[in-house]
Design a protein around this nucleic acid. Structure first.
Lengths: 213, 213
DNA sequence: TAGATTGTTAATCGATTAACAATC
DNA sequence: TAGATTGTTAATCGATTAACAATC
């Protein structure tokens, strides 16, 4: 699982490298750029099968392709977006779905006022049509942009209807008691809070105890 | 370090709980809500000193406060934003800096055209004034919203000038070879890619091998 | 063939879990 | 006091690193 979390970084770096015209790289070289050990990199790539060649290293193009397949970037995944408010509209409009491997196939909002509003080519649909829509179109993920009060019953409904992957922007953590559900709780604040803490550690602290890590 | 990454989640959940009027919680109870073991929770809190009381549990309010202090949420950290384009303007306008423990004290852009444009009460300043400004005001973090080509020399300059913490939106990973630097490379795609992969795992895969994660 | 670099196994390190004594 | 629940130590588990044989 920590391996998987590193894959996107590998992917980005290798694509970047590829765009400079490079064709091969060794685990050693890669390790200096990524701040990991060569050993770990070889271990990582070998989790998914031997992509390298002894005495040569890794072919950047095919390595990229392999990682792309693992990450599911070689195909589009259908998704829906729920909550056509400010945040939802922004995401629906500005997120490069295709480039990210997604295809937005529907936007929903429970407010009748928002019905049929056109956002980025999609007519907002009423939330009560969700179950039927899901059964018909089989989207695989839901992007949640609803207020925190609405989130729990909504996730229940979606889960029942067959969506088990969520990208949640609601500023409320979806609890973990859905078996096999995949939830990415996206909180802007998360990063900021972590960063704050690290800053605190770095700057001479103002009188509180220096606990180890 | 994994402990620190869990703190924001603890914090959010406890605040949520607090708002419902609850005053105490045991590690056992907390564990069911958070999907962790009670043991781990006690271990986590004890990294920073004993916040609990035997036979009673934890006082939610004071636990929140303690975690808030650890995360640096009890005070404001000065920061600057660089790159007053579309993304930078959006962040400068919509990010709740205060609520996140930050205070935006300056916006910079290298383009003379953007000079003196007013964004959320801040006049855009020319990038060449950066060093002097940093020396005078001592911001602690820079939010980077510049195109990827510009990022490397910029980070060099900022680092020299005394900023060692970055929140980077440039869609290019800042390399890790600045000692003690704290970089949060924020890629929308990261989450999506990871999610893609997890979806892949979940959905019956279309003919590729089922490697053990 | 010699040099380079992978794939893979074993050793180390760190984080999580279990257990239980301390104590409210 | 008895019950509950923490703080803390020891045991387990998993991930990272080191080492080296396989092989291009």
């Amino acid at each position: 699982m920590p391996v998987i979390r590193r894959l996107p970084r590998y992917y980005r770096f290798l694509r970047e490298l590829q765009s400079t015209g490079a064709t091969r790289i060794s685990s050693k070289e890669l390790s200096t750029h990524m701040g990991l050990t060569a050993s770990q990199i070889r271990q990582d790539f070998n989790c998914f099968g031997g992509f390298g060649q002894q005495g040569y290293g890794y072919n950047i193009a095919s390595l990229c392709d392999e990682i792309g397949v693992i990450l599911g970037l070689d195909r589009l995944h259908k998704c829906i977006l729920i909550g056509a408010g400010k945040l939802g509209t922004t995401i629906a409009t500005h997120m490069p779905f295709d480039a990210c491997g997604f295809q937005l196939i529907g936007i929903f909002d429970k407010s009748p006022k928002r019905k049929d509003v056109l956002i980025n080519g999609h007519q907002v649909q009423p939330a009560q049509d969700l179950a039927a829509f899901i059964q018909r179109e089989h989207p695989i993920m839901a992007i949640l942009c609803v207020p925190r009060e609405g989130i729990e019953p909504l996730v229940d409904r979606l889960y029942q209807a067959g969506i088990h992957s969520f990208w949640n922007f609601s500023h409320y953590d979806i609890p973990v008691d859905y078996p096999d559900a995949v939830v990415e709780n996206v909180h802007l604040n998360d990063s900021i809070m972590t960063l704050c803490y690290k800053i605190t550690q770095q700057v001479p602290p103002a009188g509180e105890d220096n606990t180890t890590q």
